[in-house]
Design a binder for these strands. Structure first.
Length: 740
DNA sequence: TACATTGCGATCCGT
DNA sequence: TCGCAATGTA
């Protein structure tokens, strides 16, 4: 039949596997998405499985959407009603139905790390634990680790071997209680609670495991213990689990991913069939061979033999630039040139990097050349302050017990309700064992409040109640618009009149537009569903690959994608491999896998760049080439290092006098200058410039950090004292002529 | 008591 | 550059 026609023998075997546990080890570019889509279509068409009996878990919502589309293309209408999504979205769906067994109401809020931190701060404040001694995110990351390994607060407490761990256990337990009080779940809960639920309720497990006749998991190498447990439970009756993955592309160990889930599949399922997909369809022979040479340096892996019938292609270009700004310029020039000479679209290019911080210099380079680009990742749309604020209103309307959201917006925009008033409200709610929003209803009974605060709380309460009363009647986008208007958030932004505030107002309008779009897409477009969706979308989900723009993203975000031309920027020791992995061999292997993932995103051309020096958060850092470059045999490389290319970035900011020496061949020009931006006027100050301060007398500039109004000068005064001064407050008199 | 300002410290990857 | 905690001011 033609469903199988285009597949190679291995792929065909995977697609037509009759039943029982199946592990597909799919090398980079070996067509694993095709295999999954075809297998699902095959299950529907040939094995007559109902769509509602199929559970397919992917790594991103975007991947799920693409998968659904491909299956629709193969199987048509028969595909409707499948369970397809990320672990988190599938679990949220299960929990809305089954959660009540554990006393979780279906209106629960989903807390992101921002919300988690806020909650943890409150808890630590209540317990009198210093926020500086134990930063809330540190405690939360331990708790997250525990949850993704299915360890309860009690278990953590019993394992604790020192006061620090005991404290973590105490916080864990308090944090859990707080989440339940707020009727909220964090990301880890979305996975671990269903597992707990299925452990405690055999009926619920039976119900769900019976429904899912076929379970398919993509990117199996990146599942954690909790996800693994869930997969085992959901496939416990029919035992039709199809796991697809590649141990060489496991890059989420730091998030709790456990590669042994994949490596031990055959032990966990003794009757498992294992199929290897080793023909690669994506990259040229050169790119494939080079990437194989790199990944073979890892010890902990299953050996594979990837091969391809693709052409040899061009050599991998490696270029060393003298600074991150030059690197940005190089990337822009290369793209311009390739777009022109090779007649490529901007959408063909991707620039990948290890850390989000690298994107700035790259962006500058592209912007200077006027190249269109999109950044995937960084500050996500739904994490913008204004969006989070509006969403907090909406969450509070849906889930009145959500005290984190309440605290977030009770004084945004300013209503004259400050921290003292808020803490009195919280005190009252704690004393009476009711949520803060219920305390708000009884504001007249709170004795300590002065009349002004009482009145203002009353106004806020009326606002919330009025909005909530309209919730049922209005469609989602109109609720959002109403919230933005009645909360006076919009007016508040527009009154500010700054460019930034207006951009924020536009973002809120975009959120409303998103609400319309949501409404059209869903049969039952409830606000609850909308909130869940926005909590679980990722930046990559929003990325539109048809846009005619260069894509910028981290190596992590690039997983699962491919581009005709890929640039890997910042191939330097300390970045990739990241310096935090220097001490640990396992982490080093993960860095190598990450680099490998980056290389294998490229179909036709791969360019790797590095900077000989980079501006770190504390001055200039000389950089050396990544050790991974040395793993690539020279025959695959073409090395190009431009010489004497002057900085094109205007108003270059530097911090030490010694740059020229450390970076070798830097041009003399602007390297000892930096902007002195004060009241909008741009000045350039040289290191060594003589200055005078009203209190400390004369001195000379030794260095600077930062930009614009935040510029901090390090000045050594003749009296011997050295001061770091914020430029706008330094009140310095420039004595030399040495600035313009 | 609330709000604005100042100054400090930190920065990997992200569901 | 940025967000936040501490400090200053109305």
């Amino acid at each position: 039949m033609d469903l199988l026609e285009s597949l190679n023998p291995r792929q065909k075997e995977a697609v037509t596997h009759p039943g029982g546990p199946l592990l597909v080890i799919a090398g980079a570019g070996s067509g694993k998405t095709r295999v999954l889509a075809h297998r699902i279509a095959y299950l529907l068409a040939v094995m007559k499985v109902y769509p509602s009996e199929i559970l397919a878990v992917t790594f991103t919502n975007k991947a799920a959407g693409e998968m659904a589309e491909r299956v629709r293309g193969l199987a048509g209408r028969a595909a409707q009603g499948m369970w397809m999504g990320t672990f988190h979205s599938v679990c949220a769906r299960i929990l809305r139905v089954e959660g009540k067994i554990l006393g979780i109401s279906s209106d629960f809020s989903i807390y992101d790390d921002r919300d988690q931190t806020l909650l943890m701060k409150q808890i630590m404040g209540d317990l009198g634990i210093s926020l500086t001694k134990l930063p809330p995110p540190a405690a939360l990351s331990k708790i997250s680790w525990a949850k993704s390994n299915l360890l309860s607060a009690e278990e953590i407490a019993s394992m604790a071997g020192n006061p620090y761990e005991e404290r973590i256990a105490t916080l864990y337990s308090a944090y859990e209680n707080a989440l339940r009080e707020n009727n909220a779940l964090d990301f880890d809960d979305l996975i671990s609670i269903p597992v707990r639920l299925f452990k405690s309720s055999p009926e619920a497990l039976e119900r769900n495991a019976r429904r899912f006749r076929q379970v398919l998991i993509d990117e199996y190498q990146d599942t954690n213990r909790a996800q693994y447990a869930l997969v085992r439970m959901l496939s416990s009756i029919h035992r039709n689990v199809c796991a697809v993955g590649d141990d060489d592309q496991s890059i989420y160990r730091w998030r709790g991913a456990d590669i042994t889930n994949l490596l031990n599949f055959e032990q966990d399922f003794p009757d498992a069939t294992v199929i290897r997909l080793e023909q690669s369809y994506r990259s040229t022979k050169t790119i494939l061979a080079a990437s194989q040479a790199v990944i073979k340096c890892n010890v902990q892996r299953k050996d594979k033999d990837l091969w391809t019938e693709n052409s040899v292609g061009r050599k991998i270009l490696v270029s060393a630039l003298s600074s991150e700004w030059e690197e940005g310029g190089f990337l822009a020039r290369s793209i311009e040139q390739a777009a022109r000479d090779e007649d490529r679209r901007y959408g063909d290019f991707a620039i990948l990097y290890r850390t989000n911080a690298q994107s700035r210099a790259i962006e500058d380079g592209l912007r200077r050349s006027g190249l269109p680009y999109v950044i995937v990742g960084g500050t996500k749309f739904y994490e913008r302050k204004e969006i989070k604020d509006i969403l907090a209103y909406l969450r509070l309307l849906v889930n009145p017990r959500d005290a984190v959201s309440l605290a977030r917006i009770i004084n945004v925009p300013n209503r004259g309700i400050g921290s003292v008033t808020l803490s009195r409200l919280r005190q009252f709610s704690a004393d009476n064992g009711i949520p803060p929003s219920a305390a708000l209803e009884r504001v007249d009974e709170i004795g300590e409040l002065n009349s002004g605060a009482r009145r203002r709380l009353g106004v806020f309460r009326d606002l919330i109640n009025r909005l909530r009363s309209q919730l049922e009647e209005l469609p989602v986008p109109e609720v959002i618009a109403l919230v933005a208007k009645d909360s006076t958030y919009m007016v508040y932004l527009k009154e500010q009149g700054t460019v930034e505030a207006l951009a924020r107002a536009e973002n809120i309008e975009e959120l409303v537009a998103g609400g319309f779009e949501f409404q059209e897409r869903n049969e039952e477009p409830t606000l609850r569903k909308f909130l869940e969706e926005v909590s679980l979308v990722t930046d990559i989900d929003l990325w539109d690959d048809r846009r005619e723009a260069v894509s910028l993203m981290t190596l992590h975000n690039a997983k699962g994608l491919e581009f005709p031309v890929v640039f890997i920027a910042g191939a330097e020791e300390g970045l990739i491999p990241h310096h935090t992995s220097f001490e640990d061999e396992e982490e080093m292997e993960e860095e190598r896998r990450l680099f490998y993932v980056g290389m294998t995103r490229a179909k036709q051309r791969l360019v790797i760049s590095m900077a000989a020096g980079r501006r770190g958060f504390r001055g200039w850092m000389p950089q050396v080439a990544s050790r991974f470059l040395e793993n690539i045999p020279g025959e695959f490389l073409e090395i190009m290092t431009p010489v004497g290319d002057a900085y094109t970035r205007e108003g270059l900011h530097q911090t030490r006098e010694s740059h020229g020496r450390s970076a070798g061949r830097q041009p003399a020009g602007p390297r000892q200058q930096f902007d002195y931006a004060d009241t909008g006027e741009e000045k350039v100050v040289r290191i060594g410039t003589r200055v005078r301060h009203p209190d400390w007398g004369p001195g000379s500039v030794r260095g600077c950090e930062g930009y614009g109004a935040q510029l901090r000068l390090t000045v050594r005064f003749d009296s011997g004292i050295i001061k770091r001064l914020l430029a706008s407050y330094a009140n310095l008199e420039m004595l030399d002529q040495d600035y313009a």
